[in-house]
Amino acid sequence: MSLPQPVPPSWKDLGKSSSDLLSRDFPTSGTSLEVKTATPSNVTFKVNGTLDSKTNLINGDLEGKYTDRKHGLTLTQGWTTSNTLRTLVELENQIATGLKIDLNTALTPDSGSKSALLTTTYKQPGLHTRAFLDLFKGPTFTADTVLGRDGFLVGAEASYNVTEGRVTRYATAVGYSAPEYAVTLHGLGNFSTFAASYYHRVSPDVEAGAKAIYDTKATTQGVKLEVGCKTYLDNAAFIKAKINNSGTLALGYTQSLRPGVKASFGLALDTQRLNEASPSGPAHKIGASFVFEG
């Protein structure tokens, strides 16, 4: 008798361990501040602001989120400094067990731009499938499915333009996931881009990963390669490092100052131009991120 199968990751989360290792906790594009608070009535607030080091512009957003756990309802409302209003309504496990429905809308009054995306997600052991209907673009129907068994994963995605009556995008992926490591292969953009990612938890304190991308439509042929690692110094701090085949080296340091307070610092160096500019110049980037959560 086969063992009970867990719910596999969604299509967007295939290769997530490697992507998180190589992309998160490297604040090199400026300085950001995030404040999260929660109330006893299941309402949370989040304020986020970022100072872009290139443009010196501050972008921010204010978000409020209400959760009714008894009825599986979540309502999120956001407002950004670009005057965009975002609303997300989520309903989970009410119509059927494992079924989630959400409506994500955005409106920019200044330009009249608007969007609405209706999503249904269905999760069961060995199956994770989603369907999206973009109400204003096309309309376009997108669906993806991931099947999992004994650690092996197979997924596919396709988009169909209802007005034009044709498939506009398709992609597939295969992978294997174990507690200590994961491997994923993607064929994206109508098979014009191929990606391979690898993640390995070497020990409880050390993680390593790599990602390779080959774009058949790129003007400069070749494979883009990036490798990185993460090391925990103690229970409250870790360091990360990554480098790609273009010679860009990125370093990150994250420290939990106290419960609910976290600081991260990042540095990106162009190793081929080390003598051309100071670390704050165009060849290099530095940044910081601060998170306060109560």
Rank of each mutant, 00 (worst) to 15 (best):
A106Q: 14
A277W: 00
A173L: 04
F191P: 00
C229Q: 13
F26N: 00
T145P: 07
T76P: 01
R201T: 13
G78F: 01
K46F: 00
R166G: 09
P27D: 01
G294L: 10
T145H: 10
L127V: 15
K12Q: 12
R130A: 14
P204Y: 07
S280K: 03
T120S: 11
T121I: 11
T119W: 06
Y198I: 06
T220R: 09
T172S: 14
P282W: 11
N235R: 10
S111E: 02
T120V: 08
T39R: 03
T216Q: 13
A195V: 08
A277K: 08
G112V: 01
L251I: 05
I243V: 14
G209P: 01
S10H: 12
L257P: 03
S264V: 06
N56D: 13
V89L: 13
L14N: 08
R69W: 08
L249V: 10
F141W: 04
S192Q: 11
L118E: 08
L57R: 14
I239H: 02
S23E: 15
G266C: 07
D205N: 11
A195K: 15
T76L: 12
Q272W: 07
F191A: 14
L73H: 01
S177T: 14
L75Q: 09
S177P: 08
V7D: 04
P8N: 04
Y232E: 12
G151K: 03
A131M: 15
H186Y: 12
Y176I: 07
Y160H: 13
L233V: 12
F194D: 02
V47K: 07
A277M: 02
T248H: 14
A250G: 08
L188C: 06
G165Y: 01
K100D: 00
V261Y: 05
S19Q: 11
P282T: 15
R130D: 13
S18C: 13
T108G: 02
E226P: 08
T248W: 11
R69M: 08
R86N: 11
S278A: 13
E276R: 02
L85N: 00
G148V: 05
S264T: 15
G78P: 01
L269E: 05
T39N: 05
G252V: 01
T76G: 04
S82W: 01
D13C: 08
F194C: 03
A182W: 03
G98H: 02
T39Q: 06
K12Y: 07
F141N: 06
S264Y: 11
Q77E: 14
T216K: 15
Y170M: 06
T87A: 07
S53V: 07
S264H: 05
Y214P: 04
Q255M: 09
T55L: 05
T80G: 04
G155Y: 04
T55S: 15
L14W: 01
K217G: 03
N48F: 13
G252A: 07
D110M: 06
T220H: 09
A218W: 01
K217Y: 04
P27I: 02
S159N: 03
K114A: 10
A182Q: 14
S2Y: 03
H284Q: 07
T220F: 09
Q272H: 14
T97P: 04
S29H: 05
